[in-house]
């Protein structure tokens, strides 16, 4: 028998998944954190521009700089993943391609974050 119900009717009354604001909220929280952390990055890059390796390694390995840099990497990676997720959902319509893109997005942001964290930890432990 042909299904005469509209797509809207099928989902009406089921209730929400209770995570509607989750994506929005995480994007705002990480975005807010990224403001001071980005300013820190800009100041850091200005201070370290043209400096030799030992100076840069010592600065990036110092506790405050390392912690701020790790915070930037974590907050930035989450922010990037959420932002790119929306772009993919907007423009990639094929179901298979969309899922592959979303998974690639997750893997890319996690790997990028881990690579940065590894480098910062290595610098912090005296290289």
């Amino acid at each position: 028998m042909a299904d005469m119900r509209t797509p809207l009717n099928k989902v009406r009354g089921l209730g929400s998944a209770k995570e509607g604001a989750d994506h929005f909220w995480k994007q705002r929280i990480t975005g807010l954190a990224n403001i001071p952390l980005t300013l820190f990055l800009v100041v850091t890059v200005i201070l370290l521009a043209g400096k030799d390796h030992s100076t840069v390694a010592a600065y990036l390995g110092s506790p405050l700089a390392a912690i701020a840099m790790m915070a930037l990497v974590i907050s930035g990676a989450i922010h990037m993943r959420l932002g790119m997720q929306v772009i993919i959902e907007d423009y990639v319509h094929g179901e298979g391609a969309k899922i592959i893109c979303l998974m690639t997005n997750t893997f890319f942001t996690i790997l990028m974050g881990l690579a940065c964290m590894y480098a910062i930890i290595k610098l912090s432990l005296g290289n």
Binding site: H53, L60, I87, A115, Y118, N127
Partner: peptide, 19 residues
């Protein structure tokens, strides 16, 4: 935002180079 997504590779590259 999309450009910064890929631009993050530059930050990763710089940190890895320092390490």
């Amino acid at each position: 935002g999309a450009a910064l997504y890929f631009g993050s590779l530059l930050l990763a590259w710089w940190l890895i180079a320092a390490a």
